[in-house]
Design a protein around this nucleic acid. Sequence first.
DNA 1: TTGTAAGCGTTATCAT
DNA 2: ATGATAACGCTTACAA
Lengths: 342, 342
Amino acid sequence: MIKKKYTIHDLARELDVTASTVSRALNDHPRISEKTKKKVFETARKFGYEPNTLASALRRGKSNTIGIIVPFIDRSFFASVIRGVEEETKKAGFHVTICQTHEKLEDEIQSIQTLLNARVSGMIISAAKESTNFDHLKALQDKGISVVLFDRLINSLDNCSVVIDDFLGAYKAVEHLIRQGYTRIAHFTGPEKISIYKERLRGYQSALEDYKLPINKKWIIEMNSQVSEGRKGICRLLKGKQRPDALFSSSDFSALGALQVLKEQNISVPDEFGIVGFSNEPFTQYLDPSLSSVDQNSNKMGHIAAKLLMEQINGDTMSDIAQKIYLKPELMIRQSSKRSKT
Amino acid sequence: MIKKKYTIHDLARELDVTASTVSRALNDHPRISEKTKKKVFETARKFGYEPNTLASALRRGKSNTIGIIVPFIDRSFFASVIRGVEEETKKAGFHVTICQTHEKLEDEIQSIQTLLNARVSGMIISAAKESTNFDHLKALQDKGISVVLFDRLINSLDNCSVVIDDFLGAYKAVEHLIRQGYTRIAHFTGPEKISIYKERLRGYQSALEDYKLPINKKWIIEMNSQVSEGRKGICRLLKGKQRPDALFSSSDFSALGALQVLKEQNISVPDEFGIVGFSNEPFTQYLDPSLSSVDQNSNKMGHIAAKLLMEQINGDTMSDIAQKIYLKPELMIRQSSKRSKT
DNA sequence: TTGTAAGCGTTATCAT
DNA sequence: ATGATAACGCTTACAA
């Protein structure tokens, strides 16, 4: 048995008023008498009336949906951001539609189109790695769509965005290593085009400079965020003439690779060699030794991105001036860098 | 500059036909001449026309949105299922709206309502742990909404559902331990109300019986899926008069707790004690020793759930008879249970 | 093969 | 404070 869906007309008929009155009452319109409002709400409940958000969205030209575009849903960082977004938007009566780009520009363009067709009120986007052309994002601005970028920054765009302060995170990590007494600190960096890696590299260099430690170019290795790459990287470092005694890695995965090799070669971590990774991937805390890492506050990032977006949508002042928000990263100090004083 | 959105009427005017013709052409209606179709598509492209999916959904009474409800988006299992769902539905032109229940019945009911109001075409749901009353799910059936359940089964409902074969997964895990020469195998189980844990327990018992090994009630410990609980559990086992030499845990987290304690007490894993967990959490492969675990095929589960749902939506035969699909779990054999022959 | 016209359920703009 | 009416953009009988 399929239950009938009631509409405002059904309620109107029941109450002997018009649909407009019902609509207004339901939306708490100021000049509807409290009495009718009450009556309307009552029978709405009695009938089990539920508004058709589709019709409302069509009429108003805006849905209460916001779209979120990420490379992969199941990467822990993104999953966590999405969680934050969902939690924040739900409060305001929005729901979240998700799209994956698989790091492909084409999928990104496609996703944006889909969301546009669904008339979402706004979008929260972490650009695909592949994206170097940002016309499709610029087009969104032109169309007057509210957008908040996160994680992957696009400098040529003046969108609202939320990122963590990668520079600071890196700086803190390296400073921590220095304070633990490590002096020859290497760095695994990522593709140099991507801003987050550039920033982390800068933070690394800056900390070394501030503490008057040498920057050795051979100790800076570019690689992808993979365990295997980390293994290769550390081998190269260990073979070099100048051997480092610590590593700050832009990725937890490559840090893990390094850790594995060091263990295999019986080089004690943290006593002989200190490691700090980046991202605070869930697995880092369970390693042996547990891996120090820079936490990205991903859940909070989601919350903030969502808040920012909703301000934009509601035309609140703050976001008229497009702004970048830098979240403070938190250094999670674990065994891999906590040296018993030498 | 905000670009104008074109409608089928704009196209109609341009082509000197009516909106209906344009609509039909765009939808590849059989009795529209190829010539007009071609013309319509051409000018649609020229104008950069994009359909308003909202209007279409309103008219047809169905959107091309499907809703997915999970306890937490950022649990790796769910994230991975969602990923699968997104990938599968995208192909068919659907998009995915996500809702979290935080394992709360109230949130679950609320989420369903939201999705109902958005007129989703169907829902994919993993019930909240808290849910013991399923009226809200039954109501969906009555309303004629297509639903596919996954992971958490509800036996009183005859919905389509996709689960892994927990019994088989457990059986395989325990059989593997037995074949490795372990004979006194303990088990960490979960809240007994939840079917997945019941099934895993059954698989455990069944394997022991088949291999004529004793089932010792003291070796079966109920706990939540947490590292700390696993630690407590293994301590209890080690203190007991009859000490087991292996553990099959319903959860990777509690298995990890056990592993930690064993390492601390210098009990060699896998030589003196074997462990197999469940879920194949990402961290298991990075532990030392790496933790054997039962993989749940989560991405595939998402794909299949999505396919099933879309069959239901399209009224395809298969799903007229509500069916349960049991996915074959895969045992990931790693160091924690791979004993050098004794 | 195409046109006509009504309608999906809401909301916005008049008017009263 | 409420009503009447049109419109959002699309689909779909029914006609022609």
